[in-house]
């Protein structure tokens, strides 16, 4: 029987996302997709899903689900969220089997702004313009082009059993080094004086509460423009940092409009988009300029790490089992149930 994922409660901004809607920017269509592409990718890999399979992106507003009609294997990867299965606290990056009637609650934890609930199967919402990603502003994709809410049901077709026991997923590849977010200067760095670029890189910026999937608004002393704050609209990359007339930068995120008319002082490199996305409103950020070559090298390093087998460790009564349990590849199906040793 096809399991049905049932939403018991969902805060604002919890949506179905995939790797994004590609190929339609020339028609004004927003790319969307996961805010933290690496975490999203790892969640799918932990279940042996195809890269880019649709998952549920959970905001700090939280999500509680159950499943009807059959068990469902899921993986959760992303920020340090508070995950509870039938009230039992689990680790933040975890694979588990949700049995019918079981309750899985995902709430904001210590840090992080987004996490991904991937399912071993296909979230059965129609692809719109080739993608299941939700874009709420234009009402496209996902479940009726909107965020999830209590009472929503998502059919999961082709559900597979891949998880033997509740297991902590090793998300070490996502671990932040805590350093500044790396940017490549431009494409309109020439609209700013050298001292304003230096100020942009030296300042500690605070993330405004007005931040959302479209843009992260930064607060701090405003930057000045050398050549006015309007340009003829051109295309906007994920991670581009535009500076409008207010002088306060916006980091343009997954739901950005495909074009814009303000100068972009710098662009967050692909390898750091996830770290940028995981900063919460009120949190602070610094930027460091790197070359395009360094950005490509960082991209390659992350891509290589993300292709390694996903390792996981069975959990015992909600605690991580001891280190003598060797991490295993969840997908290989060789994980033993190590839950009876009473430790």
């Amino acid at each position: 029987m096809t399991p049905m994922l049932a939403v018991l409660s969902a805060g604002p901004g919890v949506t179905v996302q995939d790797a994004g809607r590609r190929g339609w920017s020339r028609w004004g269509v927003t790319g969307c997709g996961a805010m933290d592409p690496a975490a999203f990718h790892l969640a799918n890999r932990a279940l042996g899903n195809e890269a880019g399979a649709a998952a549920i992106e959970v905001a700090t507003s939280g999500l509680e689900i159950t499943v009807e009609g059959g068990a469902l294997d899921v993986a959760i990867v992303g920020g340090d969220f508070d995950i509870r299965l039938d009230g039992r606290r689990l680790t933040a990056t975890v694979g588990l089997r949700l049995e019918p009637g079981g309750r899985l609650a995902i709430r904001a934890g210590v840090s992080g702004a987004w996490c991904y609930l991937a399912v071993a199967g296909t979230i059965d919402v129609p692809a719109v313009l080739g993608s299941r990603a939700t874009h709420i502003r234009s009402g496209l994709g996902g479940l009726g082009g909107r965020g999830l809410g209590a009472g929503d049901r998502l059919a999961i077709s082709g559900a597979r059993r891949v998880i033997e026991t509740v297991s902590a997923i090793d998300a070490g590849v996502l671990e932040a080094d805590g350093g500044p977010i790396r940017v490549v200067l431009g494409p309109q760095a020439d609209h700013f004086t050298d001292d304003q670029i230096a100020a942009f890189l030296e300042r500690e910026w605070r993330l405004s509460p007005r931040s959302d999937r479209m843009a992260y608004a930064l607060e701090g002393p405003p930057l000045g423009h050398a050549r006015g704050h309007d340009i003829v609209s051109d295309a906007v990359a994920h991670g581009a940092i535009q500076v409008p007339g207010s002088g306060l930068p916006f980091v343009l995120m997954a739901d950005r409009q495909p074009t814009g008319g303000y100068p972009k002082i710098a662009t967050v490199i692909g390898a750091d988009l996830g770290r940028m996305a995981q900063i919460r409103p009120g949190g602070t950020v610094r930027f460091r300029a790197v070359t395009s070559d360094e950005a490509v090298a960082a991209r390659r390093t992350l891509a290589d790490r993300l292709t390694r087998p996903v390792r996981s460790t069975p959990m015992v009564r909600g605690e991580l089992s001891t280190a003598d349990l060797i991490g295993r590849d969840l997908v290989s199906g060789v994980v033993d149930a190590h839950s009876d040793d009473g430790r």
Partner: peptide, 22 residues
């Protein structure tokens, strides 16, 4: 090359640098 975005006076080329060198 993933996609292109033509605008008034520029063409943006979205590409995967691990496949196609700048």
């Amino acid at each position: 090359v993933i996609e292109t975005t033509p605008t008034f006076r520029s063409l943006a080329v979205h590409y995967e640098p691990l496949v196609l060198d700048r």
